[in-house]
Amino acid sequence: MRFLPSFALLAGAASAASSWSFSDGAVEVTSKGSVSTSYIFADVQETVQLGQADRLKVSLTAKDGSKAKRPHQAFLMLKEKQTGLEAPYALTLKESGKGTVELTQKDLPIQLLTSTDPLEASLVIGSFGSTKGAVSHAFNVAILVDPNVPQPQYEAPLRYGKKPEIHHIFRDDPKSPPKIISLVFALAVVATVPLVLLGWAAMGANLDHAAKAVSGSASHILFFGSIVAMEGVYFLYYSGWKLFTVLPFMSIIGLVAFLSGSKALGEVQRRRLAGER
């Protein structure tokens, strides 16, 4: 452990008699294995590292002008730069103006403990009367975290204020394949109609007995017409009619088909018995 001699840090502290200042300001970090680093404030260029088991000790001698004296207030102030949060630590002062404060990571509030940037440490010295108080930046201290030890998590308390906007993510609309593919397959399906006609024609299908059938029984017009009309009703049902609009039409057409069908099909049977089918 070594303490290098120091000089008063505050600019103009010696000249202005009515101002508080300090001398012998030193900061010392003691690790568990008694390995320690110590700095005097004026020389602290690098950041003081405070490990999980380390103990940070700040000592100084407060001065009223050039005379060592005990002030009423001597605080070590640790400040988190981003949020501006400050944590004050009062120094234990002796009559002679000598004061010390020791702290470990356990003494830090969680907001400072989880800070990623080094904390700014400054000293506030002030007292009653006309002597001016002094606030001076002393050093920066970085909080070292042990990656093997779970870190405390800071949960911000509830505060009334604006909340982030939420926009509902809608499910995707149902998708269709490219239109050209649908069109090709639709045409392919439609093309089966002339194909089946051709097939039937090749096998000798014809409509040659139509005139004979109609002359045999006039119900054929009604019967075939009712089959076509039924399909027409189905088409209207698809394109906009409601069920109860459709039902009366279907029952009328069905009745016509039944009555005319029995006669028309009777004529067909007669033709078959006559060997004409």
């Binding site: 089966t192 109609v193 089946v196 409509l207 040659d208 139509a210 075939f224 028309a264 004409e276 089918r277």
Partner: peptide
């Protein structure tokens, strides 16, 4: 179009079944 093909096929089949000469 499949439904259309079925419907027209059905009507045509009816016509042929009833009016076809052997």
């Amino acid at each position: 179009s499949g439904i259309g093909a079925t419907v027209s096929g059905f009507v045509m089949f009816c016509a042929i079944w009833v009016y076809s000469k052997p």
